[in-house]
Simulated assay, not measured.
Amino acid sequence: MSMTMNAIIWPEGYVPGFTENFASNEIIVAGLSAADVWPLLAQPAHWPTYYANSANVRFHDGKGPQLADGDRFYFETFGFPVEALCNEYVAPAAGQPGRLAWHGWAGEVGTAERLDVHHAWLVEDLDGGRVRVLTQETQKGEPAAALHAAKPNPMINGHQDWLDGLVAAARAAKKGAQ
């Protein structure tokens, strides 16, 4: 295994530091692999089972239940109805991290309520039987500026809940499979 950790790939217009809000959360745990975690992340219908801040997941155009590049889907989180387009999907493989990302939006273009985000995930196996899950999100618009100003930061806390729930669900699924 490499001692180098991978990074999120940012699309133009969503590079951290050039948007109204940025959240970064990471967890590294022993006893799980990317293969244990990935199915729970790549199938949005699982999200509400371990992350209370997501609801009403549905796919457009007969797609799903697993995300794929170009899939449109919908879910609700942080009080926002989010339309989303999966724009990066690479399942983890030997020596290659899993990558999942989507552009999400809420509100009408050109209004004060408009929120645009790029939410990315990286899931990689590390040496010693560990897995690393990194989630980062950049946000644009007035709602993003309000989220940035809120203390404690609801994005940091919410995404940590997502990571903690994901790990707990992966551990429970692995234990149930034994």
Rank of each mutant, 00 (worst) to 15 (best):
M1S: 14
S2V: 04
N6L: 13
I8P: 03
I9C: 12
P11F: 08
E12M: 11
G13D: 09
Y14T: 06
V15Q: 14
V15M: 10
P16Y: 05
G17S: 08
E20K: 01
N21H: 13
N21C: 12
F22I: 05
S24L: 09
N25C: 12
E26P: 00
I27V: 15
I27W: 00
I28C: 04
I28M: 05
V29A: 03
L32F: 03
L32T: 07
S33T: 14
A35E: 14
D36Q: 10
D36P: 07
V37R: 02
L41A: 11
L41W: 03
A42G: 05
A42R: 14
P44C: 11
W47N: 04
P48R: 06
Y51P: 01
N53Q: 13
S54G: 07
A55W: 03
A55M: 05
A55I: 06
N56T: 08
N56Q: 14
V57Y: 10
R58K: 13
H60R: 14
D61V: 04
Q66V: 15
Q66H: 13
L67A: 13
L67S: 08
G70W: 07
G70K: 07
R72Y: 14
F75N: 15
G79H: 07
F80C: 06
P81S: 13
E83K: 15
A84T: 09
C86G: 04
N87Q: 12
Y89C: 11
V90Q: 13
P92L: 04
A93R: 11
G95Y: 02
Q96E: 15
P97D: 08
P97R: 06
G98Y: 00
L100I: 07
W102H: 11
H103V: 12
G104C: 03
G104V: 01
W105I: 03
A106M: 04
V109Y: 08
G110M: 02
T111R: 03
A112N: 03
E113S: 12
E113A: 15
L115C: 02
D116R: 04
D116F: 00
H118M: 06
H118G: 01
H118S: 03
A120L: 05
V123L: 02
V123H: 01
L126M: 10
L126Q: 10
D127E: 15
G128K: 05
G129F: 00
G129H: 02
V131T: 06
R132F: 02
L134H: 00
T135H: 04
Q136A: 08
Q139K: 08
G141L: 01
E142G: 05
P143W: 02
H148D: 15
A149Y: 03
A149Q: 15
A150W: 06
K151E: 13
P152I: 06
P152E: 09
P152Y: 05
N153C: 12
N153I: 06
P154V: 10
N157Q: 14
G158A: 07
H159R: 10
H159K: 06
Q160D: 12
Q160T: 13
Q160F: 07
D161S: 11
D161T: 12
D161F: 04
D164Q: 12
G165T: 03
G165L: 01
A169G: 02
A170H: 01
R171A: 07
A172L: 11
K175S: 14
K175H: 07
G176M: 09
A177F: 05
Q178L: 15
